[in-house]
């Protein structure tokens, strides 16, 4: 580091010390300032939340008996098998499992009499809790993903990923370009 042009009558040690100290200070300040800015940028680029989730109405709890099941479609289009497996009247009676088989993505269905979920593609079998008990999922130790459920005022709610209504989705365009009467 040359300081010839601004040479001042100071002792060499002091000069070296001052030079090192201010260099450190400068480096620290620059790192702090621009580092802070980089942190802001990182936070900006990182998705705010992985996905928006919400509790949505799924069914009237009383309308299902133990052993009943139905297919629920989440707003994002995923299918969920919701089955009632008990009569206590609690949310624990119900189970909501993704209908997508973890093996190769086929749709499973609930077999009440056999007390199991069954995937017709490769005879995958899952127990009522979604654990793989037969076929490829059992071998790979896979299970059906579960969705949280709760009961409020006798109504069953499911927590699922949400999709935005006004996101300029294909939904709005499906009708928009056609004659309104054609919808």
């Amino acid at each position: 580091m040359s300081e010839e042009t601004t040479a001042q009558p100071e002792s060499p040690e002091r000069r070296t010390f001052l030079g090192t100290a201010t260099s450190l200070l400068m480096a620290g300040g620059l790192a702090a300032g621009y580092g802070g800015f980089a942190a802001v940028v990182g936070r900006y680029l990182y998705p705010a939340k992985p996905e928006k989730k919400g509790w949505l109405y799924a069914a009237d709890a009383a309308s299902m008996k133990a052993g009943d099941s139905f297919t629920y479609r989440t707003p994002t289009g995923a299918t969920v098998a919701i089955a009632r497996q008990g009569d206590s009247g609690e949310a624990d009676d119900f189970i909501a499992l993704s209908s997508t088989c973890p093996h190769l993505g086929c749709q499973v269905h609930w077999e009440g009499p056999n007390n199991r979920f069954f995937c017709p593609c490769h005879n995958g079998v899952f127990d009522p809790q979604g654990k793989g008990t037969g076929g490829p999922p059992s071998e790979a130790g896979q299970a059906l993903p579960r969705y949280p459920l709760k009961i409020e005022n006798g109504l069953l709610f499911i927590e699922v990923p949400l999709e935005k209504l006004d996101g300029g989705s294909a939904a709005n365009e499906a009708c928009g370009h056609k004659h309104p009467g054609a919808c």
């Binding site: 940028v41 936070r43 900006y44 990182y46 705010a48």
Partner: peptide
């Protein structure tokens, strides 16, 4: 309004 620090940038 939504992205973190988006307003700032």
């Amino acid at each position: 309004d939504e992205a973190a620090f988006g307003w700032y940038l």
